[in-house]
Simulated scan of single mutants.
Amino acid sequence: MTAGFAHGTVHEAGQDLQAALRSGPGVLALWEGLTPLGRNEFICWVEDAKQPATRQRRIERTVEELMEGKKRPCCWPGCIHRTDKAPGRWQQAVLIDRK
């Protein structure tokens, strides 16, 4: 983990996401104000991107959503990597089984 940066419960924020969160005034404070699970959801959403352009858009949207007061990424069904709870049926079908 990067010292002094608040990560998620399962995922660690990449350097590009960390840089974006440190770039704007107050954005890092909003990030740090999230619960570890909330941070984890944003990180998982960014990490799930298959293409660099999608990842960059999600990083930018993360900053925008934090500034809008959001606590979780919009339209994201949730992290499937958590070990403290089983994935829901929708998560299993769409994100894991890719149906």
Rank of each mutant, 00 (worst) to 15 (best):
residue 1 M to R: 09
residue 2 T to C: 07
residue 2 T to V: 14
residue 2 T to M: 07
residue 3 A to V: 15
residue 4 G to E: 01
residue 4 G to H: 03
residue 7 H to S: 10
residue 7 H to K: 04
residue 8 G to W: 03
residue 9 T to V: 10
residue 9 T to M: 15
residue 10 V to C: 15
residue 11 H to A: 02
residue 12 E to N: 15
residue 12 E to S: 13
residue 12 E to V: 14
residue 13 A to I: 04
residue 14 G to W: 05
residue 14 G to E: 13
residue 14 G to C: 09
residue 14 G to A: 06
residue 15 Q to W: 06
residue 16 D to N: 06
residue 19 A to V: 15
residue 19 A to E: 05
residue 20 A to Q: 00
residue 20 A to R: 01
residue 20 A to E: 03
residue 20 A to I: 14
residue 20 A to P: 01
residue 21 L to C: 02
residue 21 L to S: 02
residue 22 R to G: 05
residue 22 R to A: 15
residue 23 S to P: 00
residue 23 S to I: 12
residue 23 S to A: 15
residue 26 G to V: 05
residue 27 V to Y: 05
residue 27 V to F: 05
residue 28 L to R: 13
residue 28 L to C: 04
residue 29 A to K: 15
residue 31 W to S: 06
residue 31 W to M: 03
residue 31 W to L: 03
residue 31 W to F: 08
residue 32 E to M: 01
residue 34 L to T: 04
residue 35 T to M: 02
residue 36 P to Y: 03
residue 39 R to H: 10
residue 39 R to G: 06
residue 40 N to Q: 02
residue 40 N to C: 11
residue 41 E to L: 13
residue 42 F to E: 01
residue 43 I to V: 14
residue 45 W to A: 07
residue 46 V to W: 05
residue 46 V to H: 08
residue 47 E to L: 10
residue 48 D to K: 06
residue 48 D to Y: 11
residue 49 A to K: 06
residue 51 Q to C: 08
residue 53 A to L: 14
residue 54 T to D: 04
residue 55 R to G: 01
residue 57 R to S: 12
residue 58 R to P: 07
residue 58 R to L: 01
residue 58 R to H: 13
residue 59 I to V: 07
residue 59 I to E: 00
residue 59 I to P: 03
residue 61 R to Q: 13
residue 61 R to D: 14
residue 61 R to P: 05
residue 62 T to F: 04
residue 63 V to W: 03
residue 63 V to A: 04
residue 64 E to F: 07
residue 65 E to G: 02
residue 67 M to Y: 05
residue 68 E to S: 06
residue 68 E to Y: 12
residue 70 K to H: 10
residue 71 K to E: 13
residue 72 R to I: 15
residue 72 R to S: 09
residue 73 P to L: 13
residue 74 C to I: 10
residue 74 C to F: 11
residue 74 C to P: 03
residue 76 W to L: 08
residue 76 W to P: 00
residue 76 W to G: 04
residue 77 P to K: 07
residue 77 P to I: 10
residue 77 P to R: 09
residue 78 G to D: 00
residue 78 G to E: 00
residue 79 C to N: 12
residue 79 C to E: 00
residue 80 I to Y: 13
residue 80 I to R: 11
residue 82 R to M: 07
residue 82 R to E: 01
residue 83 T to P: 09
residue 85 K to P: 00
residue 85 K to M: 14
residue 88 G to K: 05
residue 89 R to M: 11
residue 91 Q to G: 02
residue 91 Q to I: 00
residue 93 A to F: 08
residue 93 A to K: 08
residue 94 V to C: 09
residue 94 V to I: 14
residue 96 I to H: 05
residue 97 D to T: 02
residue 99 K to F: 06
residue 99 K to D: 12
